[in-house]
Amino acid sequence: MLMASPATSPVKTPLAAKATAARRRQILAWGLGIAALAVFPFMVYPLFAMKVLCFALFACSFNLLFGFAGLLSFGHAAYFGIASYVTAESAKYWGLTPELSILAGTGVAIVLGAAFGWLAIRRQGIYFSMITLALAQMVFFFCLQAEFTGGEDGIQSVPRGDLFGLIPLGSHMAMYYFVMGVFLIGFLIIYRTINSPFGQVLRAVRDNDIKATSLGIKTRHVKLAAFVISAGVAGLGGATKALVFQLASLTDVSWQASGEAVLMTVLGGAGTLTGPVMGALIVTGMQQYLAQFGSWVTIIQGAIFVVCVLAFRRGIVGELDRLAKLPAFWRRRRAERRFTPAPRASTDF
């Protein structure tokens, strides 16, 4: 085990004990999470499980920008979709193995993300959202008209191939565990990005751009780096989805797909680590079960947006977090009350 036993660390400060406890909780959470992923395809249809994981990566990538950098990108489908096209093309026509075709797709998404990110971060706030949306729409029309994308038909019957040229991924179960591995890599990238000095800087830029600049942080570099990482992870999700469904289609580059990434994140909890995954599970599940009822999916998605913005901005995981912290909050409040008199009613107006 990674944890030091009490016998090997004779001096133990309260702070160190606290850190050890936090670390233990973290390892436990990761263990539980991975175990849950491992049994996931036994509880639901494996194809559905894989779809959830691909969209979870997509939503996590959006969340990195929106939740942690405060950049509302409304065109993330561009990276998701272009990666799925490139992966499908390279797996079907160039005969690349699955891991290489996914790398190719992700690579193109990263390059596209760098170009678009460089353009979009020239403007801030709401303009940023409109620019990303417009650029993504450009990619959509490109995919509609370019030769290699197959127009309305997309690229169909993409072979899943053999992993490293050795392990056939034809069966859904084999494919699932491969997708799970890809998901963990992507999720770890996001996790490491958030929990690093870079992640701290990112939050500083989000909360106070001007102050961060005055501290010597090159905010545009930071934003661009976050944008590129985000586009890469979105691409990873799209590339994997192309192999899972053996199809690359216009659906994945449309603005509706961008909207779905936003929906998943907002519903699950923007700025939380696991919120987008939760959101992806719920939204994908909803689509699966309501698909037969025509436009109800769109109506419900709209309603979720409205409710989330008006009454539920923390999202599911954010609310759960808050509830979990409530007892400690009240304890602290009570302790503070005991020592300091209650403040007088504020008089400024």
């Binding site: 959202s129 909207g259 025509g294 109800w296 769109t298 998605q301 709209g302 947006f305 913005v309 901005r313």
Partner: peptide, 23 residues
């Protein structure tokens, strides 16, 4: 709130309207 929420809110209303008429 942050203007981003205004965008999200009106986006949701747009989906609601469009979905209803499509239905």
């Amino acid at each position: 709130l942050d203007p981003a929420y205004g965008l999200l809110l009106t986006f949701g209303i747009a989906l609601l309207l469009e979905g209803s008429f499509r239905q």
